[in-house]
Design a protein around this nucleic acid. Structure first.
Lengths: 223, 223
DNA sequence: CATGAGTTTTGGTCAAGCCAATTTTGCCGA
DNA sequence: TCGGCAAAATTGGCTTGACCAAAACTCATG
Protein backbone atom coordinates (compact mmCIF):
# COMPACT_ATOMS: atom_id res chain seq x y z
CA UNK A 1 0.00 0.00 0.00
CA UNK A 2 1.75 3.13 -1.20
CA UNK A 3 1.15 6.43 0.48
CA UNK A 4 -0.77 8.62 -1.94
CA UNK A 5 -0.75 11.70 0.25
CA UNK A 6 1.11 14.78 -0.79
CA UNK A 7 4.84 14.63 -0.21
CA UNK A 8 4.88 17.39 2.37
CA UNK A 9 2.44 15.46 4.54
CA UNK A 10 4.46 12.27 4.36
CA UNK A 11 7.62 14.22 5.07
CA UNK A 12 6.06 16.02 8.03
CA UNK A 13 5.09 12.66 9.50
CA UNK A 14 8.61 11.33 9.07
CA UNK A 15 10.04 14.34 10.88
CA UNK A 16 7.47 13.86 13.64
CA UNK A 17 8.66 10.28 13.96
CA UNK A 18 12.26 11.42 14.23
CA UNK A 19 11.25 13.66 17.13
CA UNK A 20 9.01 11.06 18.75
CA UNK A 21 11.75 8.45 18.51
CA UNK A 22 13.85 10.63 20.76
CA UNK A 23 16.58 11.51 18.28
CA UNK A 24 15.80 15.14 18.96
CA UNK A 25 14.66 16.26 22.38
CA UNK A 26 12.65 19.46 22.96
CA UNK A 27 14.97 22.40 22.51
CA UNK A 28 17.33 20.49 20.26
CA UNK A 29 18.18 21.71 16.79
CA UNK A 30 17.31 19.64 13.77
CA UNK A 31 19.80 19.31 10.89
CA UNK A 32 19.92 22.20 8.46
CA UNK A 33 17.28 22.28 5.75
CA UNK A 34 19.68 21.27 2.98
CA UNK A 35 21.06 18.40 5.01
CA UNK A 36 17.70 17.20 6.32
CA UNK A 37 16.22 17.29 2.83
CA UNK A 38 19.02 15.10 1.50
CA UNK A 39 18.75 12.79 4.49
CA UNK A 40 15.03 12.29 3.86
CA UNK A 41 15.47 12.07 0.11
CA UNK A 42 13.24 15.02 -0.79
CA UNK A 43 13.90 18.39 -2.31
CA UNK A 44 14.36 21.44 -0.16
CA UNK A 45 11.08 23.13 -1.19
CA UNK A 46 9.16 19.98 -0.31
CA UNK A 47 10.89 19.76 3.04
CA UNK A 48 10.12 23.43 3.65
CA UNK A 49 6.43 22.78 3.03
CA UNK A 50 6.56 20.00 5.61
CA UNK A 51 8.37 22.26 8.08
CA UNK A 52 5.68 24.91 7.68
CA UNK A 53 3.04 22.32 8.54
CA UNK A 54 5.04 21.30 11.61
CA UNK A 55 5.53 24.92 12.60
CA UNK A 56 1.79 25.56 12.39
CA UNK A 57 0.89 22.65 14.62
CA UNK A 58 3.50 23.72 17.15
CA UNK A 59 5.93 20.84 16.75
CA UNK A 60 8.90 22.97 15.77
CA UNK A 61 10.05 26.54 15.69
CA UNK A 62 12.00 28.00 12.76
CA UNK A 63 14.46 30.79 13.52
CA UNK A 64 15.81 32.62 10.55
CA UNK A 65 19.54 32.19 10.13
CA UNK A 66 19.76 29.99 13.19
CA UNK A 67 18.04 26.68 12.71
CA UNK A 68 15.01 24.51 13.29
CA UNK A 69 14.23 23.73 16.92
CA UNK A 70 11.99 21.14 18.57
CA UNK A 71 9.32 22.59 20.85
CA UNK A 72 7.74 21.01 23.89
CA UNK A 73 5.70 18.21 22.46
CA UNK A 74 3.95 17.57 25.76
CA UNK A 75 0.98 19.75 24.92
CA UNK A 76 -1.23 18.07 22.33
CA UNK A 77 -3.56 21.09 22.33
CA UNK A 78 -6.34 18.79 23.37
CA UNK A 79 -9.59 20.33 24.40
CA UNK A 80 -10.55 17.32 26.41
CA UNK A 81 -11.10 18.58 29.88
CA UNK A 82 -11.09 16.09 32.68
CA UNK A 83 -12.77 18.21 35.25
CA UNK A 84 -13.39 15.62 37.89
CA UNK A 85 -12.39 17.64 40.91
CA UNK A 86 -13.82 18.35 44.29
CA UNK A 87 -17.29 19.90 44.53
CA UNK A 88 -16.04 22.87 46.48
CA UNK A 89 -13.46 23.63 43.83
CA UNK A 90 -16.07 23.30 41.14
CA UNK A 91 -18.47 25.69 42.77
CA UNK A 92 -15.70 28.15 43.55
CA UNK A 93 -14.60 28.09 39.93
CA UNK A 94 -18.17 28.66 38.81
CA UNK A 95 -18.55 31.55 41.25
CA UNK A 96 -15.42 33.25 39.98
CA UNK A 97 -16.15 32.78 36.30
CA UNK A 98 -19.90 33.28 36.16
CA UNK A 99 -19.67 36.33 38.38
CA UNK A 100 -17.14 37.83 36.00
CA UNK A 101 -19.18 36.93 32.94
CA UNK A 102 -22.40 38.41 34.23
CA UNK A 103 -20.72 41.80 34.47
CA UNK A 104 -20.16 41.65 30.73
CA UNK A 105 -23.60 40.24 30.15
CA UNK A 106 -25.40 42.92 32.11
CA UNK A 107 -23.96 45.57 29.85
CA UNK A 108 -25.36 44.10 26.66
CA UNK A 109 -28.49 42.50 28.09
CA UNK A 110 -31.39 42.69 25.64
CA UNK A 111 -35.08 42.71 26.43
CA UNK A 112 -35.39 39.43 24.57
CA UNK A 113 -32.87 37.78 26.87
CA UNK A 114 -34.62 39.20 29.90
CA UNK A 115 -37.90 37.75 28.68
CA UNK A 116 -36.26 34.39 28.04
CA UNK A 117 -34.81 34.34 31.54
CA UNK A 118 -38.24 35.15 32.99
CA UNK A 119 -39.76 32.27 31.08
CA UNK A 120 -37.05 29.93 32.32
CA UNK A 121 -37.69 30.90 35.94
CA UNK A 122 -41.43 30.45 35.46
CA UNK A 123 -40.81 26.94 34.15
CA UNK A 124 -38.46 26.34 37.04
CA UNK A 125 -41.13 27.36 39.56
CA UNK A 126 -43.57 25.09 37.79
CA UNK A 127 -41.16 22.17 38.02
CA UNK A 128 -40.67 22.73 41.73
CA UNK A 129 -44.36 22.94 42.58
CA UNK A 130 -44.97 19.73 40.69
CA UNK A 131 -42.17 17.97 42.47
CA UNK A 132 -39.88 17.73 39.43
CA UNK A 133 -36.19 18.57 39.61
CA UNK A 134 -35.61 21.71 37.55
CA UNK A 135 -32.09 20.76 36.51
CA UNK A 136 -32.69 21.63 32.88
CA UNK A 137 -34.14 25.02 33.75
CA UNK A 138 -31.24 25.70 36.09
CA UNK A 139 -28.86 24.86 33.32
CA UNK A 140 -30.75 26.96 30.80
CA UNK A 141 -30.71 29.96 33.13
CA UNK A 142 -26.97 29.95 33.66
CA UNK A 143 -26.22 29.16 30.05
CA UNK A 144 -28.51 31.92 28.75
CA UNK A 145 -26.67 34.46 30.87
CA UNK A 146 -23.31 33.17 29.70
CA UNK A 147 -24.41 33.27 26.08
CA UNK A 148 -25.58 36.84 26.38
CA UNK A 149 -21.95 37.83 26.88
CA UNK A 150 -21.63 36.97 23.20
CA UNK A 151 -18.54 34.84 23.46
CA UNK A 152 -18.71 31.19 22.47
CA UNK A 153 -15.64 30.24 24.49
CA UNK A 154 -17.07 31.64 27.71
CA UNK A 155 -20.40 29.97 27.03
CA UNK A 156 -18.68 26.68 26.47
CA UNK A 157 -16.68 26.93 29.67
CA UNK A 158 -19.81 27.69 31.70
CA UNK A 159 -21.57 24.75 30.10
CA UNK A 160 -18.73 22.37 30.86
CA UNK A 161 -18.50 23.48 34.47
CA UNK A 162 -22.24 23.14 34.97
CA UNK A 163 -22.39 19.69 33.44
CA UNK A 164 -19.48 18.63 35.58
CA UNK A 165 -21.78 18.65 38.59
CA UNK A 166 -23.71 15.83 37.04
CA UNK A 167 -20.73 13.69 36.20
CA UNK A 168 -20.50 10.24 37.79
CA UNK A 169 -18.03 11.51 40.36
CA UNK A 170 -20.45 14.09 41.62
CA UNK A 171 -23.54 11.96 41.43
CA UNK A 172 -23.07 10.38 44.84
CA UNK A 173 -23.37 13.62 46.73
CA UNK A 174 -25.96 15.14 44.51
CA UNK A 175 -28.95 13.87 46.40
CA UNK A 176 -28.43 16.32 49.23
CA UNK A 177 -28.92 19.20 46.90
CA UNK A 178 -32.11 18.09 45.37
CA UNK A 179 -34.66 18.75 48.03
CA UNK A 180 -37.62 21.01 47.41
CA UNK A 181 -36.33 23.49 49.95
CA UNK A 182 -32.97 23.70 48.25
CA UNK A 183 -34.52 24.28 44.87
CA UNK A 184 -36.84 26.90 46.27
CA UNK A 185 -33.87 28.76 47.72
CA UNK A 186 -32.08 28.50 44.40
CA UNK A 187 -35.11 29.88 42.62
CA UNK A 188 -35.22 32.86 44.97
CA UNK A 189 -31.56 33.56 44.26
CA UNK A 190 -32.19 33.27 40.54
CA UNK A 191 -34.91 35.88 40.84
CA UNK A 192 -32.45 38.18 42.61
CA UNK A 193 -30.02 37.76 39.72
CA UNK A 194 -32.75 38.47 37.20
CA UNK A 195 -33.84 41.57 39.08
CA UNK A 196 -30.31 42.95 38.93
CA UNK A 197 -30.15 42.24 35.21
CA UNK A 198 -33.50 43.93 34.64
CA UNK A 199 -32.10 46.96 36.41
CA UNK A 200 -29.00 46.75 34.20
CA UNK A 201 -26.92 46.86 37.33
CA UNK A 202 -23.68 44.94 36.63
CA UNK A 203 -22.32 45.08 40.17
CA UNK A 204 -25.59 43.98 41.73
CA UNK A 205 -25.79 41.16 39.23
CA UNK A 206 -22.25 40.13 40.01
CA UNK A 207 -22.98 40.10 43.73
CA UNK A 208 -26.20 38.16 43.25
CA UNK A 209 -24.51 35.55 41.10
CA UNK A 210 -21.68 35.14 43.57
CA UNK A 211 -24.11 34.81 46.44
CA UNK A 212 -26.13 32.24 44.55
CA UNK A 213 -23.22 30.00 43.67
CA UNK A 214 -21.66 30.26 47.10
CA UNK A 215 -24.96 29.30 48.72
CA UNK A 216 -25.45 26.60 46.13
CA UNK A 217 -22.06 25.16 47.01
CA UNK A 218 -22.91 25.15 50.71
CA UNK A 219 -26.23 23.41 50.08
CA UNK A 220 -24.47 20.84 47.95
CA UNK A 221 -21.94 20.04 50.67
CA UNK A 222 -24.28 20.00 53.62
CA UNK A 223 -24.69 16.71 55.39
CA UNK B 1 5.58 49.61 10.04
CA UNK B 2 6.86 47.03 7.61
CA UNK B 3 5.61 43.50 7.93
CA UNK B 4 8.56 41.40 8.98
CA UNK B 5 6.77 38.10 9.02
CA UNK B 6 7.70 35.34 6.68
CA UNK B 7 6.38 35.81 3.19
CA UNK B 8 4.12 32.79 3.30
CA UNK B 9 2.29 34.19 6.32
CA UNK B 10 1.74 37.55 4.70
CA UNK B 11 0.62 35.86 1.52
CA UNK B 12 -1.77 33.57 3.39
CA UNK B 13 -3.35 36.60 5.03
CA UNK B 14 -3.76 38.32 1.68
CA UNK B 15 -5.52 35.29 0.26
CA UNK B 16 -7.73 35.16 3.36
CA UNK B 17 -8.62 38.77 2.68
CA UNK B 18 -9.50 37.98 -0.92
CA UNK B 19 -11.89 35.33 0.35
CA UNK B 20 -13.26 37.47 3.17
CA UNK B 21 -13.83 40.35 0.77
CA UNK B 22 -16.25 38.14 -1.11
CA UNK B 23 -14.32 37.88 -4.35
CA UNK B 24 -14.47 34.11 -3.94
CA UNK B 25 -17.46 32.45 -2.31
CA UNK B 26 -17.29 29.01 -0.67
CA UNK B 27 -17.03 26.41 -3.40
CA UNK B 28 -15.51 28.83 -5.88
CA UNK B 29 -12.17 28.13 -7.51
CA UNK B 30 -9.26 30.46 -6.97
CA UNK B 31 -7.00 31.41 -9.90
CA UNK B 32 -4.36 28.87 -10.83
CA UNK B 33 -1.18 28.84 -8.77
CA UNK B 34 0.94 30.40 -11.49
CA UNK B 35 -1.59 33.14 -12.11
CA UNK B 36 -2.32 33.82 -8.43
CA UNK B 37 1.40 34.01 -7.66
CA UNK B 38 1.92 36.61 -10.36
CA UNK B 39 -1.19 38.49 -9.24
CA UNK B 40 0.12 38.68 -5.67
CA UNK B 41 3.66 39.41 -6.77
CA UNK B 42 5.28 36.39 -5.14
CA UNK B 43 6.99 33.31 -6.48
CA UNK B 44 5.11 30.09 -6.92
CA UNK B 45 6.96 28.20 -4.13
CA UNK B 46 6.13 30.99 -1.68
CA UNK B 47 2.50 30.96 -2.72
CA UNK B 48 2.45 27.19 -2.34
CA UNK B 49 3.72 27.52 1.25
CA UNK B 50 0.90 29.97 1.95
CA UNK B 51 -1.64 27.62 0.36
CA UNK B 52 -0.47 24.78 2.59
CA UNK B 53 -1.04 26.96 5.65
CA UNK B 54 -4.52 27.80 4.38
CA UNK B 55 -5.21 24.15 3.62
CA UNK B 56 -4.21 23.14 7.15
CA UNK B 57 -6.49 25.65 8.81
CA UNK B 58 -9.38 24.58 6.59
CA UNK B 59 -9.75 27.72 4.54
CA UNK B 60 -9.18 26.07 1.17
CA UNK B 61 -8.97 22.66 -0.41
CA UNK B 62 -6.37 21.78 -3.04
CA UNK B 63 -7.33 19.21 -5.65
CA UNK B 64 -4.51 17.88 -7.74
CA UNK B 65 -4.88 18.75 -11.39
CA UNK B 66 -8.13 20.56 -10.77
CA UNK B 67 -7.64 23.72 -8.77
CA UNK B 68 -7.83 25.49 -5.43
CA UNK B 69 -11.30 25.71 -3.91
CA UNK B 70 -12.72 27.83 -1.08
CA UNK B 71 -14.21 25.82 1.77
CA UNK B 72 -17.10 26.72 4.02
CA UNK B 73 -16.00 29.59 6.19
CA UNK B 74 -17.95 28.17 9.10
CA UNK B 75 -15.98 25.47 10.83
CA UNK B 76 -18.36 23.40 12.96
CA UNK B 77 -15.60 20.80 12.78
CA UNK B 78 -17.95 18.06 13.78
CA UNK B 79 -18.60 16.54 17.15
CA UNK B 80 -17.60 19.13 19.66
CA UNK B 81 -13.97 18.83 18.77
CA UNK B 82 -12.26 22.04 17.90
CA UNK B 83 -12.41 25.20 19.93
CA UNK B 84 -11.27 27.16 16.90
CA UNK B 85 -12.76 30.53 17.60
CA UNK B 86 -11.81 34.00 16.64
CA UNK B 87 -8.73 35.46 18.28
CA UNK B 88 -10.76 38.36 19.61
CA UNK B 89 -13.14 35.99 21.35
CA UNK B 90 -10.25 34.07 22.82
CA UNK B 91 -8.55 37.13 24.19
CA UNK B 92 -11.83 38.50 25.52
CA UNK B 93 -12.48 35.24 27.31
CA UNK B 94 -9.00 35.31 28.82
CA UNK B 95 -9.46 38.92 29.91
CA UNK B 96 -12.73 38.12 31.67
CA UNK B 97 -11.53 34.99 33.38
CA UNK B 98 -7.96 35.87 34.29
CA UNK B 99 -9.01 39.29 35.59
CA UNK B 100 -11.52 37.59 37.86
CA UNK B 101 -9.04 34.98 39.02
CA UNK B 102 -6.33 37.46 39.88
CA UNK B 103 -8.66 39.11 42.37
CA UNK B 104 -8.77 35.81 44.26
CA UNK B 105 -5.06 35.29 43.74
CA UNK B 106 -4.07 38.69 45.09
CA UNK B 107 -5.75 37.89 48.39
CA UNK B 108 -3.74 34.75 49.06
CA UNK B 109 -0.54 35.74 47.31
CA UNK B 110 2.50 34.36 49.10
CA UNK B 111 6.00 35.76 49.09
CA UNK B 112 7.17 32.59 47.41
CA UNK B 113 4.79 33.09 44.52
CA UNK B 114 5.88 36.72 44.21
CA UNK B 115 9.49 35.58 44.01
CA UNK B 116 8.63 32.97 41.41
CA UNK B 117 6.84 35.55 39.29
CA UNK B 118 9.85 37.86 39.53
CA UNK B 119 12.12 35.06 38.33
CA UNK B 120 9.81 34.33 35.43
CA UNK B 121 9.84 37.95 34.30
CA UNK B 122 13.63 38.03 34.58
CA UNK B 123 13.85 34.98 32.34
CA UNK B 124 11.36 36.59 30.00
CA UNK B 125 13.50 39.72 29.71
CA UNK B 126 16.50 37.52 29.05
CA UNK B 127 14.67 35.70 26.28
CA UNK B 128 13.70 38.96 24.64
CA UNK B 129 17.18 40.47 24.69
CA UNK B 130 18.56 37.29 23.18
CA UNK B 131 15.99 37.26 20.44
CA UNK B 132 14.14 34.22 21.71
CA UNK B 133 10.38 34.14 21.90
CA UNK B 134 9.42 34.02 25.60
CA UNK B 135 6.30 31.98 25.02
CA UNK B 136 7.13 29.53 27.78
CA UNK B 137 7.77 32.34 30.26
CA UNK B 138 4.58 34.07 29.22
CA UNK B 139 2.70 30.85 29.81
CA UNK B 140 4.42 30.25 33.14
CA UNK B 141 3.55 33.76 34.35
CA UNK B 142 -0.15 33.47 33.64
CA UNK B 143 -0.32 29.91 34.89
CA UNK B 144 1.51 30.74 38.14
CA UNK B 145 -1.03 33.46 38.88
CA UNK B 146 -3.91 31.16 38.09
CA UNK B 147 -2.46 28.42 40.30
CA UNK B 148 -2.05 30.80 43.20
CA UNK B 149 -5.84 31.02 43.35
CA UNK B 150 -5.55 27.45 44.61
CA UNK B 151 -8.19 25.94 42.37
CA UNK B 152 -7.16 23.26 39.90
CA UNK B 153 -10.20 23.83 37.71
CA UNK B 154 -9.43 27.50 37.24
CA UNK B 155 -5.78 26.74 36.57
CA UNK B 156 -6.75 24.19 33.97
CA UNK B 157 -9.10 26.58 32.22
CA UNK B 158 -6.45 29.28 32.06
CA UNK B 159 -3.97 26.78 30.67
CA UNK B 160 -6.34 25.56 28.01
CA UNK B 161 -7.21 29.07 26.92
CA UNK B 162 -3.55 30.05 26.76
CA UNK B 163 -2.59 27.02 24.69
CA UNK B 164 -5.50 27.66 22.38
CA UNK B 165 -3.59 30.60 20.97
CA UNK B 166 -0.99 28.21 19.66
CA UNK B 167 -3.41 25.76 18.19
CA UNK B 168 -3.20 25.07 14.46
CA UNK B 169 -6.08 27.36 13.72
CA UNK B 170 -4.49 30.31 15.41
CA UNK B 171 -1.01 29.66 14.20
CA UNK B 172 -1.45 31.36 10.87
CA UNK B 173 -1.93 34.74 12.45
CA UNK B 174 0.52 34.10 15.21
CA UNK B 175 3.38 35.89 13.52
CA UNK B 176 1.83 39.27 14.15
CA UNK B 177 2.24 38.89 17.85
CA UNK B 178 5.78 37.75 17.92
CA UNK B 179 7.87 40.80 17.25
CA UNK B 180 10.42 42.04 19.73
CA UNK B 181 8.46 45.24 20.26
CA UNK B 182 5.31 43.32 21.08
CA UNK B 183 7.08 41.12 23.60
CA UNK B 184 8.72 44.15 25.18
CA UNK B 185 5.33 45.76 25.63
CA UNK B 186 3.96 42.53 27.07
CA UNK B 187 6.84 42.40 29.53
CA UNK B 188 6.12 45.92 30.72
CA UNK B 189 2.49 45.00 31.29
CA UNK B 190 3.54 41.89 33.18
CA UNK B 191 5.64 44.06 35.47
CA UNK B 192 2.63 46.25 36.14
CA UNK B 193 0.64 43.17 37.14
CA UNK B 194 3.43 41.98 39.40
CA UNK B 195 3.67 45.40 41.04
CA UNK B 196 -0.03 45.29 41.89
CA UNK B 197 0.36 41.81 43.35
CA UNK B 198 3.35 42.87 45.43
CA UNK B 199 1.20 45.66 46.83
CA UNK B 200 -1.51 43.09 47.55
CA UNK B 201 -3.92 45.34 45.68
CA UNK B 202 -6.62 43.11 44.13
CA UNK B 203 -8.35 45.85 42.17
CA UNK B 204 -5.12 47.22 40.73
CA UNK B 205 -4.10 43.69 39.78
CA UNK B 206 -7.45 43.11 38.13
CA UNK B 207 -7.12 46.33 36.16
CA UNK B 208 -3.54 45.55 35.14
CA UNK B 209 -4.44 42.05 33.98
CA UNK B 210 -7.38 43.34 31.98
CA UNK B 211 -5.24 46.04 30.40
CA UNK B 212 -2.58 43.50 29.50
CA UNK B 213 -4.89 41.01 27.82
CA UNK B 214 -6.80 43.71 25.98
CA UNK B 215 -3.56 45.17 24.65
CA UNK B 216 -2.30 41.70 23.86
CA UNK B 217 -5.42 41.04 21.82
CA UNK B 218 -4.98 44.27 19.91
CA UNK B 219 -1.35 43.47 19.13
CA UNK B 220 -2.36 40.04 17.95
CA UNK B 221 -5.02 41.39 15.61
CA UNK B 222 -3.08 44.30 14.17
CA UNK B 223 -2.59 44.22 10.44
C1' DC C 1 40.67 38.90 27.89
C1' DA C 2 37.18 41.60 25.59
C1' DT C 3 35.86 43.16 21.09
C1' DG C 4 34.56 43.71 16.61
C1' DA C 5 35.07 42.96 11.70
C1' DG C 6 35.05 39.34 8.31
C1' DT C 7 33.73 34.60 7.17
C1' DT C 8 30.69 30.77 7.39
C1' DT C 9 26.37 28.70 8.28
C1' DT C 10 21.48 28.72 7.86
C1' DG C 11 16.92 30.01 6.65
C1' DG C 12 14.18 32.95 2.89
C1' DT C 13 13.04 33.60 -1.71
C1' DC C 14 13.03 33.28 -6.61
C1' DA C 15 13.39 31.29 -11.42
C1' DA C 16 12.66 27.73 -14.80
C1' DG C 17 11.49 23.33 -15.97
C1' DC C 18 9.48 18.62 -16.11
C1' DC C 19 6.04 15.22 -14.38
C1' DA C 20 1.30 13.59 -13.11
C1' DA C 21 -3.59 14.15 -12.42
C1' DT C 22 -7.58 16.33 -14.19
C1' DT C 23 -10.32 18.74 -17.28
C1' DT C 24 -11.52 20.26 -21.72
C1' DT C 25 -11.71 19.89 -26.57
C1' DG C 26 -12.97 18.03 -30.71
C1' DC C 27 -12.82 14.36 -33.86
C1' DC C 28 -14.87 10.07 -35.29
C1' DG C 29 -18.32 6.70 -35.81
C1' DA C 30 -22.98 4.87 -35.01
C1' DT D 1 -27.47 14.45 -34.31
C1' DC D 2 -25.46 12.37 -30.51
C1' DG D 3 -22.42 9.62 -27.70
C1' DG D 4 -17.90 8.27 -26.61
C1' DC D 5 -13.11 8.35 -26.44
C1' DA D 6 -8.48 9.98 -27.23
C1' DA D 7 -5.44 13.94 -27.79
C1' DA D 8 -4.43 18.46 -26.08
C1' DA D 9 -4.58 21.99 -22.72
C1' DT D 10 -4.84 23.14 -17.91
C1' DT D 11 -3.47 22.66 -13.25
C1' DG D 12 -1.22 21.09 -9.16
C1' DG D 13 3.27 18.31 -7.56
C1' DC D 14 7.96 18.21 -7.33
C1' DT D 15 12.95 19.05 -8.45
C1' DT D 16 17.27 21.58 -9.37
C1' DG D 17 20.04 25.50 -8.83
C1' DA D 18 20.97 29.87 -7.53
C1' DC D 19 21.25 34.22 -4.84
C1' DC D 20 19.99 37.13 -0.74
C1' DA D 21 19.68 38.21 4.29
C1' DA D 22 19.95 37.11 9.04
C1' DA D 23 22.38 34.77 12.55
C1' DA D 24 26.33 32.40 14.32
C1' DC D 25 31.06 31.70 14.37
C1' DT D 26 36.30 32.79 13.95
C1' DC D 27 40.10 35.02 14.88
C1' DA D 28 43.13 38.85 14.73
C1' DT D 29 43.59 43.04 17.31
C1' DG D 30 43.78 46.37 21.05
Amino acid sequence: MTDTRRLYQQTADRVRQLIAKGDYQPGARLPAERELAQQLGVSRPSLREALIALEIDGTIEIRMGSGIYVLNTTRPSGNGRSLGESPSELMQARAVIESAIIVQAAATMTDETIAALRAILAAMADDITQGRKPIEQDRAFHLAIAESADNTLLAEIVTNLFDERHSPLSAGIRGHFETTDSWTAALTEHHAILAALEARDPLAAQAAMHTHLAASGRRWLET
